[in-house]
């Protein structure tokens, strides 16, 4: 045995190669934090819109009017619902994009620092195994909304996202599995607590993401 490669170092090399070739390990803790912050802002905006709508309907301030975004006397109740619905969809879309882009950028920065390509086979596998359950879940939720089952939106998001994360844990740092379990527990409880959907959604996508992100940053990225 040559003295340049002591056994401990060799074993560590073997382990590193195994991990690097089968898992995408550059996922940054900051990605979790930024996604969580986006989710909290999105939930806050949605809550504002909903309470504004409820106040208007019950407080007699009139109805939302198309185009103006303000309340007026001329609108119809049906229009108000439709506008609220559209507003919430826009908020959801912006929240999703902001979370996706910000978390992508933090992970891109980390993989650059580590000198690991972001486009190798491990990323493709991770992406496919995360996106598949999320796209299927998204379709289910869209149909549920069209059928008027709004109570299913929050638990549906939590449950399908939780399943996606548990599935993804085989292809990246394994701790993401616990984030998935957390989302699943919240989603399942929320199946029986329908009216509190937005709070459960904010707890899962906001708080859990931030807690997970800080933990992962602490464990893998902190400079001692």
């Amino acid at each position: 045995m040559d003295s340049q490669h002591p056994p401990l170092e060799t074993l560590q090399d073997i382990k590193r190669m195994m991990e690097r070739s089968s898992r995408f390990i550059s996922l940054s803790g900051w990605s979790g934090v930024s996604a969580g912050v986006c989710a909290l802002l999105g939930a806050w905006a949605a809550q504002n819109r909903i309470s504004g709508y409820l106040q208007a309907i019950h407080g007699g301030r009139g109805y939302y009017e198309y185009g103006t975004g303000r309340f007026g006397r001329t609108g119809q109740l049906g229009d108000s619902v439709a506008i609220l619905y559209n507003d919430l969809l826009v908020i959801a879309g912006i929240t999703f994009l902001a979370a996706l882009i910000s978390s992508f950028l933090f992970t891109l920065a980390r993989s650059r620092r580590n000198g690991i390509s972001m486009w190798d086979r491990t990323v493709q596998r991770l992406a496919w195994n995360t996106i598949l359950p999320m796209v299927v879940g998204g379709l289910v939720i869209l149909r549920a909304m069209e059928w008027g089952y709004y109570e299913l939106v929050a638990p549906g998001c939590l449950i399908f996202y939780g399943l996606a994360l548990v599935n993804a844990s085989k292809y990246t740092l394994g701790e993401i599995r616990y984030l998935g379990y957390g989302q699943l527990v919240l989603g399942i409880i929320n199946l029986w607590t329908g009216g509190l959907g937005l709070y459960f959604w904010a707890a899962g996508f906001g708080i859990l993401h931030i807690v997970y992100g800080v933990f992962m940053w602490w464990k893998y990225e902190r400079q001692p």
């Binding site: 490669h5 060799t10 090399d13 073997i14 382990k15 190669m17 195994m18 690097r20 070739s21 089968s22 390509s117 190798d120 086979r121």
Partner: peptide, 24 residues
Amino acid sequence: RIRMGVMSILIVNEEVSFNDLKQM
């Protein structure tokens, strides 16, 4: 070290292409 690296990669991946091995 290269043969050791190849074996480390192949033991956790069912099938790996020449180009992926080269890159890794």
